[in-house]
Design a protein around this nucleic acid. Structure first.
Lengths: 333, 333
DNA sequence: TTTATTTACGAAATCGTTTTCGTACTTTCA
DNA sequence: TGAAAGTACGAAAACGATTTCGTAAATAAA
């Protein structure tokens, strides 16, 4: 705090910069001017140490190369910038160990709050509870942990899957396969439930359906899906639970010379900007990713700004849209 | 530092946790054990303040909903986690004002180093120089500032554009339009130069070409490209300089009933995972996004770990790949 | 005019580590 | 056996802000 040789104490400088009422308007102006000129910004670490808050949040998510997550980050960052917060980003790559290790680091007080979408591997939440217990606000978005009483920003997974499945049945599907990526993820479960409900409501026998658990790597999934599509009773519909399955599904159908939508109809939960220009264009369930990111960040900042709110009450369900395109057309051109 | 009532001073605890040679092995073990048990992690802000380094870097980039950038972040984060660094993310949305304001904040000492890809609006680099002058290492990736003597991780933009253009000409194009997004961005300039060189090398007259400056919003671009494609001498080839133009290009061609590749051939600089399943599949120049992110982060950490290196020498050019698909086929099926 | 109040500022404690120095106590070596 | 070197720790000074508390001067109330 050198340059403050305009004959004032460091205490006064600090107060002036924080616009304290104890400091006269003229002095404030003098300080502001000089700070501006010297490009002075108070040291973050000194400030955070003393004030016991860092104006920093963490975003913990599985990956970033997925339209949903990148759009969500966009929403989060937008709100954070408005509020003057900084955003640390951590990728779990769906690994529980990584997630736990990241959360352990948070014990250091590095962040004031956390936004997260849990890894598909995660089925134990001790690491999260530990932090939540220390009064660090956490808001879940998309993939939530139901055993933690905090705000959860989700979309209507059950209903969306229900709608999508019903749509496929109406379009003529009699044997729809669901492609999931996890057995314990909240979104997977809800989507699978919606899918099952639609099947039973439409009178499809459970034998005429299947749930395929995919992994995180494309090659493995290619093999799995190929095998699925070579079964004697081949599915005539595929409901992909996550965006990243899209290229693989198309590839398999292409390689097996299965026509979409004539022989197989496809719907994927996806925010791909290219959905409309795929071959054929893809019917998607489009999640309000940007809005969910914004909402999650907004809920978190609300909790950070006033600690007496009931954060769980900030939970929100933002509906997805089923956008019907050629991949489920019942009259393929 | 409460729990450290195992009869040791805080100095000893600190040294033990940092594995100082002054502390006996037994004492270290006692400390480790208890720290583990209590889930103790030293306060980041106290530590960073005292040590004058934060183990935190910033990634400043235009946006995240672009396959190139999301893959790059992936690469960056991978290296950062290995090295025990934390990653702050800042989006400029191509705005100069945002970029400048973000950089101004860095005066606070919040980050030890910076990775960046400059905004398309940026054509003045005072904000960057200011920080670079204060000895904060900066590494550019993809979009660089040539007037700052530091490491730059780029791809072979000139050559790639040259190759792509040549390929289009060989495939029969006689009038290729280049779709750019900036007049001052390093990548745009290099790509445009490669494009021009290819045209002249192949004996295409400058009149038989055009460079269209697109904006950041899809609607505007739709109008611009539509206008371009309705000209009396309509381009029979489009070279898109950035991924995000892809849906718009396809949409325009579709709406104007122009067949790709029969009437218009298309190549885009893109890392879209769906390029192969578009209608028609898209010939792309695929940038080594993940590798560039990794390389940029690696260069930065090298500079952070030993300050006596010549950071500019860490610059790297990683080649892109021209992946030929149906959108430039000369024998459309 | 005297006593309260208010205004505008500074001294010093504080945030939680890290690091420098000092100091007992051992060990080593001539 | 005495000096030199090494070992294992603690006291206290940083790091650079913020905040509490005190106080002199100016203003208001009595």
């Amino acid at each position: 705090m050198l340059a403050h040789e305009l004959q004032l104490s460091i205490a006064t400088i600090s107060k002036a910069l924080r616009d304290s009422h104890e400091i006269s308007a003229v002095t404030k102006q003098r300080v502001f001017k000089l700070a501006e000129k010297l490009n002075y910004v108070p040291n973050t670490y000194a400030s955070s140490l003393r004030r016991r808050k860092s104006k920093t949040i963490a975003v913990v998510l599985p990956e970033v190369s997925d339209s949903f997550f990148s759009l969500a980050i966009n929403g989060i960052e937008t709100v954070a910038q408005e509020k003057g917060y900084h955003v640390l980003i951590y990728l779990t790559h769906e690994k529980f160990a990584r997630e736990a290790s990241i959360f352990n680091d948070f014990q250091s007080g590095r962040v004031d709050g956390i936004l997260m979408s849990v890894a598909s591997e995660t089925n134990e939440t001790f690491h999260i509870k530990e932090l939540f217990g220390r009064n660090i606000p956490i808001v879940f978005f998309d993939r939530v942990c139901n055993d933690i009483p905090t705000a959860k920003i989700v979309t209507d997974d059950f209903d969306s899957a229900y709608k999508a499945t019903t749509h496929m049945i109406k379009a003529g599907c009699k044997n729809i396969a669901a492609l999931s990526i996890s057995n314990n993820l909240s979104i997977s479960n809800n989507r699978i439930e919606g899918y099952k409900k639609a099947l039973s409501d439409e009178g499809i026998k459970p034998g005429r359906s299947s749930i395929l658990l995919c992994s995180n790597e494309a090659e493995g999934n290619y093999a799995l899906i190929t095998k699925l599509m070579q079964k004697s009773v081949r599915p005539d519909g595929i409901l992909g639970m996550v965006e990243k399955l899209t290229p693989t599904i198309y590839q398999v159908c292409n390689d097996l010379q299965l026509k979409i939508p004539a022989q197989v109809k496809v719907v994927v939960f996806s925010n791909l900007s290219t959905a409309a220009i795929l071959n054929p264009s893809l019917t998607t369930i489009t999640q309000p990713a940007f809005e969910m990111g914004k909402a999650a960040a907004t809920a978190l900042f609300k909790a950070l700004e006033k600690s007496n709110i009931d954060i769980e009450k900030e939970s929100l369900i933002i509906p997805s849209n089923l956008i019907i395109r050629d991949s489920t057309s019942s009259h393929p051109s």
